[in-house]
Design a protein around this nucleic acid. Structure first.
Lengths: 331, 331
DNA sequence: ACCGACCACTAGCGCGCGCTAGTTCTGGGT
DNA sequence: ACCCAGAACTAGCGCGCGCTAGTGGTCGGT
């Protein structure tokens, strides 16, 4: 066997600790810590620094995060609790931007979608994160657990009003309604999927739809759940009722509306115009391609990171609107 | 202020530790540990047990996972590194099943999609997981980092042959090819998306497609990348070359193929039959609905959990084939 | 009366690391 | 010759928990 590094330290497969580095470099454990963490206020000679760094590299030292978390009192982990909505392209960009911004601050973003069957212990009790970002308000039960687990910052903060990044998520219908209104549609419907899990957001968007329809002097839009089984009935009912424009909760629902309309013999967008939401890949692939609302994930992601790490929870940074309308064939 | 529990322990917001419970219950810290962990081989009186449990409940005690991980030497976390493929419905079921199975063993499954821009520290160095499941083989660099981080079980194990759960992921084309062959198609094409990230799996599936086409005495299928910009050209080229059946990498690609064929004036499935893969929701929504391959996530998930926790890495459990063909309109 | 077995606990180490409170060693100023 | 400031370190505590090696007490058997 080639005399590999692990063997030299003794125990087969034992992980390399800072003490190993200290011994090998002929310094104390504290010095190793100072060098590897660039601890401010410590003066270390060039020579020692080099020796420690070289030895750490040679032995492939990786600090043990549990020990670090225990000693420092912070895991440097930020947990994003994702809702179970099919994650659109925009959401992925959002999380990636947030992740990058957090990384620059030495944090690690972990995303998590809770399983339907409630976990024995919620993930934040296991990970001990520094902050938890939810995309849906937490229940009282969850809030209690979060507090007991010592999570320092929770978003949205239970008890506080919803932060704008969440209300922003429900602002899409404004663009959808405005567009349909501009095209002369007077009677709209809001279409939502059946999924229980998206209900809270769907209701929020339905509310926004009604609000802006009222503002623009349109007929009060009806809200309908679109199911694969009876979508045809719903679409026919719309047609009979004079509905010509559909605000869809997301692109999947929009796709279902458009597909059903076509099968029912309606023309899209002539007989029924549909605007989706999320700008998911299928939006452009669908025949006809879907007009939809694009969400600027980059901006939103940075905003989220800033919210999670801001030292003073009372002062929140401003969020420029991250929504844009994408015009395609379906409306 | 109502005299709340936290206040009683002293420090504002300090988290409740096992020592607090011990003090309040009038027992030693060890006893608290024995009670809360049901440590085998320890005899605790009913009375004491009740007192400790009650006190833990009253104070909302949550064990500090970092400390536990440090002391026990294991984080009880299993990390699944997901590829960046759009996560189909089947994949979600797979992960959920795996998560549940792991939970029954006291483990926590954390899923993670590495960002495109490489993270400063890969997630496993931060989380210190007990096992890491990859859906794509690890690079040498990653393998080294995994070993240095003390991860006990890595799947797929670098250096070992691919486990069947991964080769199984490439078995779908067998069903796709067999179906098309049974319908009398002699000349097939394999359609893959452009995405760099799915390339390794796409190539694997292309190989399987060729293999089974050969086995069934079909013409050697050509492999084509389907891009939105020039999909029309590709589809026309297929038609000219006498290709009548398309094996698609996934449902998105199948959707693109079908959509393009329709726009080009071809009939589906009469002129071009297409079989997708993944049974994603759009597969049934699309017009015409897509024939596709369904992957039984439940079986696969349990298998994964078993692989991650099996005590002896040399003996792997059997995996029954988790694939089924779903017949719809496109083929 | 004494012993051993068993029950019901407790004292305290060790996990790996961050960090405070020293300690030793220069080298320049008086 | 002495002092003292600063550079360059080190000793060792504490984070919260798991767990081993005890320790006292009770009870049945001889």
């Amino acid at each position: 066997m080639a005399g590999n590094v692990e063997k030299q330290t003794g125990g087969a497969g034992r992980r390399v600790t800072a003490a190993d580095i200290a011994r090998a470099a002929g310094v104390s454990r504290a010095t190793v810590g100072f060098v590897l963490n660039d601890t401010p206020g410590q003066t270390i000679s060039q020579d020692t620094r080099r020796r420690v760094l070289a030895e750490a590299e040679r032995q492939g030292y990786r600090p043990h995060s549990a020990a670090r978390a225990l000693a420092s009192g912070s895991s440097r982990i930020v947990l994003a609790v994702l809702p179970d909505w099919p994650m659109g392209f925009s959401m992925r960009t959002t999380l990636e931007a947030a992740s990058l911004a957090l990384q620059e601050q030495g944090r690690t973003l972990i995303t998590h979608t809770p399983p339907h069957r409630a976990a024995a212990r919620p993930l934040w009790e296991v990970l001990d994160p520094e902050a938890v970002l939810g995309f849906v308000p937490f229940t009282d039960e969850q809030a209690r657990s979060l507090r007991a687990s010592g999570v320092r910052r929770v978003l949205p903060d239970p008890g506080e009003p919803l932060p704008d990044f969440l209300t922003g998520l429900a602002e899409g219908p404004r663009l959808q309604v405005e567009h349909l209104a501009a095209r002369g549609h007077r009677r709209l419907a809001f279409a939502t999927p059946e999924e229980e899990r998206v209900r809270s957001l769907a209701e929020e968007r339905a509310r926004t739809t009604r609000e802006h329809a009222a503002r623009l002097g349109l007929e009060p839009p009806q809200v309908h759940t679109l199911r694969i089984e009876d979508a045809a009935d719903t679409v026919r009912a719309w047609h009979r009722a004079g509905v010509t424009g559909v605000v869809a909760y997301n692109d999947d629902t929009a796709a279902l509306a458009v597909g059903t309309a076509l099968r029912t013999g309606l023309r899209v967008p002539e007989d029924l115009a549909v605007v989706g939401h999320d700008d998911s890949p299928i939006a452009s692939l669908f025949v006809p391609s879907l007009s939809t609302v694009y969400l600027d994930g980059d901006t939103l992601g940075r905003h989220l990171a800033a919210l999670a790490l801001r030292p003073d929870p009372t002062e929140a940074p401003e969020l420029p609107s991250p929504l844009t309308l994408v015009l395609r064939e379906s409306a």
